[in-house]
Computed example of a mutant assay.
Amino acid sequence: MMMWAWWDARNKANASEGLPEIEGVLRRATLMAIDAKMLKEKTNCKPGKKRVKWTPPEPDILKVNIDGAFLESEKSGAWGYIVRTSDGEAVLAGSGRLTSVYDVLCAEMYACLHALSACSEQGMMKIQIESDCSNLVSAMTKSNFDLSPAGALFQDARLFISLNFVSVEFKYCHRSANECAHELARYGLSRDPDQDCVWSDPLPVFVTNLVTHNQVGYRVNE
């Protein structure tokens, strides 16, 4: 993977696209290796046939898309989230690594907890949380997962919400409508465990590029 990243970078330089930064090449090589590993561990997953666009929230609500990444072979993972307004403007985002996580539902829950904490610190009192994990949405709206390995996390999150927010709604969304959060979780896999990232205005260029790509032709609420 490293050789491929260097080869690609050299070809772009020869094509007069400029020399890339060393950090960028290393990050790309790391993400390529992670992608290959995650693809190998998802051999039982079938690709979705439909593509759903991201939908903005109501004007007085902020939409928070979250996602967790999980590597079964290492019992490790990562999290990512992004917060957008009804105009589609990204105002907050985060990403980080999980060195030890029990399963994919726990990884999704850590993404939720990090997002809730960041939103609370920013004074965001009315939010809508979207996840492409239906079990997470069910766990946060009911008590049927309270005895699972992540049960204590669900209970703590519900208590945190009751103390710090005016309204929080959980919704399931299709994977294609959650691409920004997915990419941020994937980015988290390349981070050191003690280097969590939380970005507010202005957001890094690579995050704004993700938003632009994800929202081209996004569906507006009717």
Results as ranks from 00 to 15, higher is better:
residue 147 L to G: 04
residue 48 G to F: 08
residue 166 V to P: 01
residue 34 I to C: 04
residue 193 P to S: 11
residue 83 V to D: 01
residue 199 W to E: 06
residue 53 K to M: 06
residue 105 L to K: 08
residue 195 Q to Y: 04
residue 110 Y to R: 14
residue 194 D to L: 13
residue 210 L to G: 00
residue 123 G to R: 01
residue 210 L to Q: 02
residue 221 N to W: 15
residue 118 A to Y: 00
residue 7 W to R: 11
residue 43 T to Q: 08
residue 208 T to E: 13
residue 140 M to E: 07
residue 51 R to Q: 07
residue 40 K to R: 15
residue 16 S to R: 15
residue 16 S to Q: 14
residue 109 M to C: 14
residue 149 P to Q: 05
residue 79 W to D: 02
residue 185 A to I: 14
residue 122 Q to I: 04
residue 144 N to P: 04
residue 216 V to Y: 09
residue 40 K to V: 03
residue 46 K to G: 07
residue 102 Y to R: 02
residue 147 L to Y: 14
residue 220 V to C: 01
residue 110 Y to L: 11
residue 187 Y to L: 13
residue 41 E to G: 08
residue 150 A to D: 00
residue 93 A to R: 02
residue 65 N to K: 09
residue 207 V to N: 05
residue 54 W to T: 07
residue 196 D to I: 01
residue 9 A to I: 06
residue 153 L to F: 06
residue 184 L to R: 10
residue 28 R to E: 09
residue 188 G to F: 04
residue 197 C to A: 13
residue 124 M to A: 07
residue 206 F to Y: 10
residue 210 L to K: 01
residue 153 L to Q: 02
residue 43 T to D: 12
residue 48 G to P: 13
residue 173 C to N: 07
residue 93 A to F: 05
residue 110 Y to N: 04
residue 154 F to V: 00
residue 159 L to V: 11
residue 53 K to Y: 03
residue 2 M to C: 09
residue 192 D to M: 06
residue 198 V to T: 13
residue 215 Q to W: 01
residue 50 K to A: 11
residue 78 A to R: 07
residue 4 W to D: 12
residue 70 F to Y: 15
residue 208 T to C: 05
residue 216 V to W: 01
residue 214 N to S: 14
residue 173 C to W: 07
residue 10 R to M: 05
residue 122 Q to T: 02
residue 135 N to F: 05
residue 75 K to M: 04
residue 213 H to P: 00
residue 176 S to Q: 05
residue 174 H to P: 04
residue 17 E to T: 02
residue 195 Q to G: 05
residue 66 I to E: 03
residue 128 Q to F: 02
residue 217 G to Q: 05
residue 13 A to I: 03
residue 187 Y to M: 00
residue 185 A to M: 03
residue 112 C to G: 10
residue 44 N to T: 15
residue 124 M to I: 10
residue 17 E to F: 12
residue 11 N to F: 11
residue 200 S to E: 10
residue 184 L to V: 00
residue 222 E to Q: 14
residue 101 V to L: 03
residue 108 E to L: 10
residue 60 D to A: 04
residue 2 M to S: 12
residue 109 M to L: 15
residue 28 R to F: 03
residue 12 K to H: 12
residue 158 R to M: 08
residue 179 E to H: 09
residue 98 L to R: 00
residue 138 S to L: 14
residue 130 E to M: 08
residue 121 E to L: 13
residue 5 A to N: 02
residue 126 K to Q: 13
residue 133 C to I: 00
residue 182 H to V: 06
residue 210 L to W: 01
residue 74 E to H: 07
residue 170 F to E: 03
residue 102 Y to T: 15
residue 117 S to T: 09
residue 52 V to K: 06
residue 202 P to Q: 07
residue 201 D to A: 11
residue 38 M to G: 07
residue 103 D to A: 13
residue 15 A to I: 00
residue 72 E to F: 12
residue 165 F to E: 04
residue 127 I to P: 02
residue 92 L to I: 04
residue 198 V to G: 02
residue 32 M to H: 05
residue 52 V to Q: 11
residue 30 T to A: 11
residue 34 I to E: 03
residue 60 D to V: 12
residue 134 S to Y: 12
residue 38 M to R: 12
residue 158 R to I: 02
residue 213 H to K: 15
residue 159 L to K: 12
residue 16 S to V: 05
residue 130 E to V: 06
residue 109 M to F: 06
residue 103 D to W: 10
residue 162 S to W: 04
residue 187 Y to C: 10
